[in-house]
Amino acid sequence: MSAAGTALKAIRDALIVAWVNGWIAMVRGFVWVLSSALTPLSILVVLAAHGGLKGLKWGLVGGLIWIVTSSSLSLIGDAAYYRVAIKYQSMLVASPTSAVGYAIGLALSALIFALPALLAHIILLALLDVPALTLESLYALATLWLATAGMAFAASGLVRHMKYAWSVPSILSAVMVVCAPVYYPATLMPSPYLGVLLPTGAAGIVLQHSARLATYSAPLLLAALLSLTAQSIVGLYCTARLARWRER
């Protein structure tokens, strides 16, 4: 198959997996959508109660990052479930299904699941006249999605028992959002540049600046964007490398 043919097959497979694991799953299990949106909504309410309008804005911007991160990381559970619990991945390995398409499809399906919560946040931000969705912040969210999805796909390969598959994403989401400047400014850290080490923090810096919740220097913004670019490339590399599906 030519390179273009391979790429088209990967895109087609990604869309099929996203339809199955994202759209159909969402339509049949809307309660899961609610449960995935519950944590950022809870934080939003707490921040709004204590911080008023400013707290609400911080909650909405942080919520966008939380939703993208936690939905991408939930891929750990899905990928491990398909590989370990029901052996669906084994069935696809023995077929012409594109490995990269499968991995990207799982990541896309996680995004489909997150769409209702994301839309709710975006609408609220628009109503509050917060300019959060600039070109830079959209780029930050997209690269955050790629970086965390790649990380999740790599981590899913390490899961040997299902009991870890559902708990690890929640722990990782909390760590990545709390340890990085997502709900607070990077200036609270010993050095604001520490904030760019995690993709969540880098995205937080870009979004907070776009939303005018914090003002950061141009070098820090550049560092955040470069960090996100690098981590998304690493994420894609992890996906492509680990998605070969063959156990050594």
Binding site: I24, G29, Y88, A94
Partner: peptide, 21 residues
């Protein structure tokens, strides 16, 4: 590998279909 995968199909041991479909 690619050529093999185009001509084979498999039901793995303890395999199950996706239950919400």
């Amino acid at each position: 590998t690619g050529r093999v995968r185009r001509v084979i199909a498999a039901v793995p041991q303890e395999g199950k279909p996706i239950d919400f479909l």
